[in-house]
C-alpha cells in the first residue's frame, strides 16, 4: 500500500502543478525552463563541495579508522545483546547514507531484521540523518564558515533519537 502510494506521488505532483499553472495562465514551459536553469546552477555550486566531502569520507573509510572505532565500542554493546556492527553504523550514518545502507543490509543478513539488533538498526536508521554530510553540503553551498550552534543541536537531536531507538526496541521485544 505504502509502496504503491509513493509510486503515485511524483506523477500526481507534476499533474497538479502543471494543471494549476495552465489554469492560472502561466507560461508553463518557459517557467519550467527558467527554474531548471536555476536548479542546475545550484548543482554546479555544490559539486566542488561534494567532491571534497566524499574524498574525506572515502579516506576515513578506506583507512579502516571507522571499523576500528566500531570494534572499540562493539565489545561494550555486545554485552548488552546488540551486535558489534551497530556502533560503526551510527558513526557511518552521520557521514554517508549509502555507506550506511550497505552496513544495514549486512546486519539484516547476519542477525535478521526482526532480531534485537535488526529492530534497533531499523528504528535508528529511521530517526537519524547524515549529520556531517548535510551540514557540509548546505553550509558550503551558502559559503558559511562558522556554523555557530548547529553542531551541538544536531548532535543532541541525533543522540536523543538513538536513545529513543534503544528504549523503543526494548519495548517491542
Amino acid at each position: 500500500m505504502l509502496m504503491r502510494l509513493s509510486v503515485i506521488i511524483i506523477p500526481a505532483l507534476i499533474f497538479y502543478i502543471v494543471l494549476n499553472g495552465v489554469l492560472n495562465k502561466v507560461d508553463v514551459y518557459d517557467a519550467f525552463v527558467k527554474g531548471a536553469m536555476d536548479g542546475l546552477k545550484t548543482v554546479v555550486t555544490v559539486l566542488p563541495t561534494l567532491v571534497g566531502l566524499m574524498i574525506a569520507v572515502g579516506v576515513l573509510r578506506a583507512s579502516g579508522f571507522l571499523s576500528m572505532l566500531g570494534a572499540l565500542f562493539g565489545g561494550i554493546t555486545e554485552r548488552a545483546g546488540i551486535g558489534a556492527e551497530f556502533v560503526p553504523l551510527v558513526f557511518i550514518k552521520m557521514f554517508s547514507s549509502s555507506a550506511a545502507t550497505g552496513l544495514v543490509l549486512d546486519i539484516f543478513e547476519e542477525y535478521g531484521p526482526d532480531s534485537r539488533t535488526g529492530l534497533l538498526t531499523s528504528i535508528m536508521m529511521s530517526c537519524t540523518e547524515t549529520c556531517f554530510y548535510t551540514m557540509s553540503v548546505y553550509y558550503m553551498a551558502a559559503r558559511v564558515k562558522k556554523t555557530r550552534w548547529t553542531l551541538p543541536g544536531a548532535l543532541l537531536a541525533t543522540g536523543v533519537g538513538i536513545a529513543a531507538s534503544v528504549v523503543l526496541t526494548e519495548m517491542m521485544l
Binding site: V18, G21, L23, N24, K34, M37, G39, T42
Partner: peptide, 19 residues
C-alpha cells in the same frame, strides 16, 4: 542534476501559479 532541474522547474511553475 536531473532531479534538481525537474524539481526547481516545477517549483517555478508552482510559484508563478500562486501555489
Amino acid at each position: 542534476a536531473g532531479a534538481m532541474a525537474l524539481w526547481v522547474g516545477l517549483m517555478e511553475i508552482a510559484g508563478q501559479a500562486g501555489l
